[in-house]
Design a protein around this nucleic acid. Structure first.
Lengths: 188, 188
DNA sequence: GTCTATAGGATGATAGAC
DNA sequence: GTCTATCATCCTATAGAC
């Protein structure tokens, strides 16, 4: 599929945003990377804000959809956590630049988009928290502070995008197995 | 100890940088937060870059020093990892805004400062990697990919600063114990 | 779909008065 | 130590020609 000009702009912008952050990238930077002038961008997009919200909403929706699908499945809590780890790796492989922007520049969203994304993130976390609490209640997960478990797994998964160079050489399925093992069974 | 005016500026800037990122905060923003005019800032600091490099170098040095001290101690690899987790929590409690800036805005450093900080981070990672490899060699740590272990622990520790509101209610020593347990022994 | 030209405002930083 | 005034540059975005 040949990308539309709009999709091209968003992809180029995503790569620059990942490198320097939304605020440090100008419309001129994006245009220069495409070998056109900044004014030409506005024939395809309404402004810089549209690039940001498109980029972030795309991947935020992916996470939300996958997570609610997992919640509905009939699996043990530990199996669900395993699935969460796997979908995180899959989405990271496909949207690594979007995730950088979601993590680092969500606060530069404006209006309804900001509210929506914050809400999606809260819902996601709440779903994850429920899985952990259920695992603790069933005795499958250690009676540790659920917040500590949630935080430590989630921060590893959320920064996976930073790890793409080293991961590049690793097979995705090997990475999934290792990650599941380390996060669930520990290292000792 | 009463902070100097310069230290005040850096502290106020750190808080704003943590919230919106270095590039999105103007000298006028910093001045406004101190109830003075932007031009007055230049009586105390040479420019925005100086704020950034002071902030980052301060905490980068703290990590580097603590890490090389641990390397020299006579402990088992697992005990060393335990110590690394503990010093990360301690430094995060004391420098939470600096760490946000180190993590998110190091690429906006210029000249020698940029090189120095990148090198310090590489050295830090290399020390950590050595500890893990030694643990694997001795059979104390699972023969998992050392990179996966390194990455998963380090990304949890590096984003601890994001967790200060929830952590606020938790005792630091309880947090250390839980974190060590989750990261080393897993959750199952 | 891209260009030139430009508006209108923000930005980092300096000069010089108090 | 802070101020006002200002400079030179950069920013997002628009208008209108091709």
């Amino acid at each position: 599929m040949k990308p539309t000009r709009k999709q091209e702009i968003i992809q180029v912008a995503a790569s620059l945003f990942k490198e320097k952050g939304y605020s440090a990238v100008s419309m001129r930077d994006i245009a220069q990377a495409m070998d056109i002038k900044a004014a030409s961008l506005y024939n395809h997009i309404s402004g810089k804000q549209e690039i940001l919200s498109t980029l972030i909403l795309e991947v935020a929706k992916a996470f939300t959809n996958k997570m609610s699908a997992i919640t509905l499945e009939t699996l043990t809590p530990l199996q669900k956590i395993e699935k969460v780890i796997e979908i995180h790796i899959d989405i990271t492989v496909n949207y690594s630049e979007n995730i950088a922007t979601l993590n680092n520049d969500w606060m530069h969203l404006e209006g309804d988009d900001l509210e929506r994304v914050v809400k999606m993130r809260e819902d996601y976390e709440e779903n994850f928290r429920s899985i952990i609490k259920q695992g603790v209640a069933q005795g499958d997960i250690k009676p540790q502070h659920p917040e500590v478990i949630l935080f430590s797994i989630l921060s590893t998964l959320r920064t996976l995008y930073l790890w793409n160079e080293k991961r590049g050489k690793m097979d995705v399925n090997v990475l999934k197995k290792d990650m599941v093992s380390v996060l669930i069974k520990g290292i000792a």
